[in-house]
Design a protein around this nucleic acid. Structure first.
Lengths: 339, 339
DNA sequence: TTGTAGGCGTTATCAG
DNA sequence: CTGATAACGCCTACAA
């Protein structure tokens, strides 16, 4: 933990000016002799360049922030897993923010861009409020939003297509002969909550199934809350034969509660989750789940941000990642073996 | 994305000196009138203080790095989940590094402390090599290691007690009447690999069970590798009746392979994992697992680092977190219902 | 090719 | 109480 050497220290040691040291360190044309002396001094002193000073001068931090709603949700992790290598390869560090989907915290993160400790931000908000849009419009660094923002918002935008995703799931359940399909959703004031709720109604109608509002239960995007919501739903509609869950955590809660209630999955009640997280493959029974392409969305977001960082101003872009239904035992009863 | 205002901008606008602006912004005693003018100007301009310049001056970045081996392993996530709020509450941001347990990458991270972009580091290396120790001895910022380092290494150290943990598991299996207990371990040149391998032998002897090296199979700490290792082990020792797996991912791989091989869990083969991750509770059958206190270790690490950052030099500390056996269906056959 | 000097935005010292 | 002014460590004209 010794005092770190600076270019001044090196300059003294090598008997040259700090300008020469800087030049050598940055590979600018310099006399061989000088290069040798500087390198030798730097080596002996164990010099490492100071990133902070460099940032102040260059106005670039080589850091990018990623703001996730919930560190406990594997869907965000899947994004992070893809974001990480893309940014790292381009020489960026990742600063992690966990907002717990609290709007004030998200606004804080947006506001803190003004502190200029990062060159850009990838954010995945659950709600997009007026304040969000206002902050986004005046953000002091490029932002990529994973989730949907209104047209005209001056940020790059990576979207999932949960509408089609829900339709894939409902069609699948319908094809399996299910007719009383319940929906366990997260808060309707969240972007995914609203989209998935609307998509459910739409998909039912497309199948020719009647929409019964008793079949819809609002909870939250966590396992315990999901379980509670399912319990309430079962209570009200004992004869339902399938559950569309707005994410995998809710679906796990559903499995908990159904098991406790003695309902067999999928014989009595088929269950579908969303996000196709690692948990879906590990659960019992394994969970049919709609992949919304978390990994792909993370990768796309990182690439959009990099492009923006490297090429500066341009029109905002929108990338939409298509969903995919991953069928497992919770709807078909067939556990896959092997790896 | 307008040019950001600086204290100079504010000073001009308010008609005072930059020194006064700085004072007001830092809450130092100032005349009311001046305060008012400065605040008004700052408000109008949407001023946000520049973190980089502030860091250069104060030699504090208010950032802490967390270097995890594997973003895909929920055990590290559990740590992160605890580290995050502790550091955030103290005003620190988290910079995330994923090293994939590659020694060179970990050394890089240690080396990069010299760049002074963080005030400290929490690292959880799988291996601790000579180079690690060498870098730790000369690290340019406080480091907390999650994992075991030799006595005398000048860093704070949070340890799991996998020796006791393995013993808990073996005792449990022995008490259930299992006598041919296999071990699926990660690489023996890793700290946990070595510790758990030795603990297995020790625990067997403590139970009065003979040690048979055929019962030990080396793989790696991932699901697919774990599965392959189990397959090899089953091939060689068809009559084993229990598996001690060195982490939960390996155990999941074991479940995959056992299912494919038509062995019932736990009737034919009981399975125990380690780390007690979310996956253990979600898997089928749910997984008995030894909790090594990932969450507690993360919390302890964050607190040690904070203490060090706030109080400066002091003797290195060692915190050891006790293990806990979490019994589930993969050894007893009884699925818990409910949440 | 090399050195001197100014500035990136803040904080802090020291006279007024 | 306030205003110059000097750092913090680095980069980069500009001049020698």
């Amino acid at each position: 933990m010794a005092e770190g050497p600076t270019i001044t220290t090196i300059a003294e040691r090598a008997g040259v000016s700090i300008a020469s040291v800087s030049r050598v360190l940055n590979g600018l044309p310099t006399r061989q002799e000088t290069v040798r002396k500087v390198m030798a001094a730097a080596e002996e002193l164990g010099y490492v360049r100071n990133a902070v000073a460099r940032s102040l001068k260059s106005r670039r931090t080589h850091q990018v922030a990623f703001a996730m709603a919930d560190v406990g949700n594997p869907a965000y992790l899947a994004m992070l897993r893809q974001i990480q290598p893309v940014l790292k390869a381009a020489g960026y560090r990742i600063v992690l923010h966990s907002t717990d989907a609290v709007v004030a915290d998200e606004i804080d993160v947006l506001h803190s861009l003004g502190e200029r400790y990062v060159d850009g931000l990838i954010m995945s908000p659950l709600r997009v409020t007026g304040r969000h849009l206002q902050m986004l419009a005046t953000a002091r660094a490029p932002v990529v939003i994973i989730g949907s923002v209104p047209e005209g918002t001056p940020v790059d935008n990576v979207r999932a297509d949960s509408r089609t995703g829900v339709k894939l799931a409902i069609d699948h359940l319908h094809a399996l002969g299910r007719r009383r399909i319940g929906m366990v959703n997260g808060p309707p004031d969240t972007v995914p909550g609203a989209a998935r709720g609307a998509a459910y109604i739409e998909a039912l109608e497309a199948c020719g199934l009647p929409y019964d509002e008793n079949l819809v239960q609002i909870g939250d995007f966590y396992r315990a809350e999901g379980g509670r919501a399912v319990a309430a739903l079962l209570d009200r509609v004992p004869d339902l034969d399938a559950l569309m869950c707005a994410n995998d955590l809710i679906a796990l809660g559903a499995l908990d509660v159904l098991r406790a209630a003695g309902r067999r999955v999928p014989q009595d009640v088929a269950v579908v989750g969303m996000d196709d997280t690692d948990l879906a493959a590990a659960s019992w029974p394994s969970l049919t789940s709609v992949s919304l392409g978390s990994a792909e969305r993370g990768k796309a977001a990182a690439e959009l941000l990099l492009d923006r960082l490297q090429h500066g101003e341009r029109e905002p872009r929108v990338v939409t990642v298509p969903p995919r239904l991953v069928v497992r035992a919770s709807t078909t009863g067939e556990e896959e073996g092997g790896t």
